[in-house]
Amino acid sequence: MNDTTAVATKTASAAPTPAESALLPPVDVFEDATGITLYADLPGVPKDKLHLEIDADTLTIEGEAQLDLPGDLEASHAEITVPRYRRVFTLSRELDTEKVSAEMHQGVLKLRLPKAAHAQPRKIEVRG
């Protein structure tokens, strides 16, 4: 699940320039019979600064962290140095990209990518 060269070329021409570095948010991804669930840690990102995009089989998660910092704040220690997150995944064909749902709660994004009906497991009855 890495961004391929083709994807990198495509996104480079869009808004995020290569100079705009971004943090790679940690994710959990698990799959059950009906689809895939993804959780991503995006602390500091309000809902309106979250950008989700599915272009063909590419899922892009982008977010901008916003903090109300006092103007005269002098940083003495920083582990989060870039207020931006970005991560790209390649989706597989059986996922129904029309039915993706997303929710954001306390800096955690939850994405549900259901499988298309034909890709869901069916029990085949054996006759005779």
Binding site: M1, P26, V27, D28, V29, F30, E31, D32, A33, I36, Y39, D41
Partner: peptide, 10 residues
């Protein structure tokens, strides 16, 4: 039946 593909979050 659930398969964990990526487990990075603390």
């Amino acid at each position: 039946k659930a398969v964990v593909h990526i487990n990075e979050r603390f």
